[in-house]
C-alpha cells in the first residue's frame, strides 16, 4: 500500500474524532487506532460511515496477562471501495471484562463477539444472543484465558507410563 495513504488516514481520523482516539500507531503501513470502551462505538460508526470501512473482517481478543490492562479487543476493518485496512484496539482491565456490543454498527460482530465471550469470558453489553459458540453448551470456564494450563494430560514417558495409564478414564462397552 502507498505509505501516504496510511499516514493520511491516521491524521484525518485523528482530526475528525478528536479525543475519542487516544493514539494512532503506524507500523509497516498498518494503522492501529487506540480508543476506549466508552468511545469505541463512536469510532466504529465514524469509520463505517465517513471513511467507508464497510466490512468487519475480524473481531478478536488478546490476553496480555500479567500485563495491566490485561485484555485487548481488536476490530479489523476493511474498506471494499478504497482497498485499505485499519485496526481499532480497546484495552480492558482485569476487573472490567465488559464492553458495548458492535452488533449495532456491524452485523458481522454477532458471532465474533460470541466467540470472544466463549473463549475469553468478556461480556458484550446489548448483545442480542450472547451464548457459547465454540465449546459445548455445558462447558465450564473460558479456555483461552492464561490461567488455564497449556496441557491437559501429562506426557507419558517410561517412568510415569503405568501411573498415567492407571488414572486414565477408559470407556466400557
Amino acid at each position: 500500500m502507498d505509505q501516504s495513504v496510511t499516514t493520511n488516514l491516521g491524521s484525518t481520523v485523528l482530526a475528525a474524532l478528536g479525543d475519542a482516539v487516544n493514539d494512532v500507531r503506524i507500523f509497516r503501513d498498518e494503522v492501529t487506532l487506540i480508543t476506549t470502551k466508552e468511545r469505541v462505538l463512536e469510532v466504529l460508526q465514524h469509520l463505517r460511515d465517513v471513511q467507508h470501512f464497510e466490512m468487519l473482517t475480524d473481531e478478536t481478543c488478546v490476553d496480555y496477562y500479567p500485563r495491566e490492562p490485561r485484555f485487548g479487543i481488536l476490530y479489523q476493518l476493511y474498506s471494499l471501495s478504497r482497498n485499505i485496512r485499519v485496526r481499532v484496539k480497546v484495552m480492558l482491565g482485569e476487573y472490567e471484562r465488559t464492553i458495548p456490543t458492535a452488533c449495532g454498527v456491524y452485523t458481522a460482530a454477532n458471532w465474533l463477539e460470541r466467540e470472544i465471550y466463549d473463549l475469553f469470558g468478556i461480556t458484550f453489553d446489548g448483545h442480542p444472543d450472547l451464548r457459547r459458540i465454540m465449546m459445548p453448551p455445558g462447558w465450564e470456564g473460558h479456555p483461552l484465558l492464561k490461567e488455564n494450563p497449556v496441557k491437559v494430560e501429562e506426557v507419558a514417558f517410561s517412568f510415569n507410563r503405568n501411573r498415567i495409564d492407571a488414572e486414565k478414564p477408559y470407556a466400557r462397552e
Partner: peptide, 18 residues
C-alpha cells in the same frame, strides 16, 4: 490425543468407546 494435548481434544478415543 497426539500433538493436540489441549482442552479441545479428547486424549484418546478409548475414553469414549472401547
Amino acid at each position: 490425543g497426539g500433538v493436540f494435548n489441549n482442552y479441545a481434544v479428547v486424549q484418546g478415543v478409548d475414553e469414549i468407546v472401547p
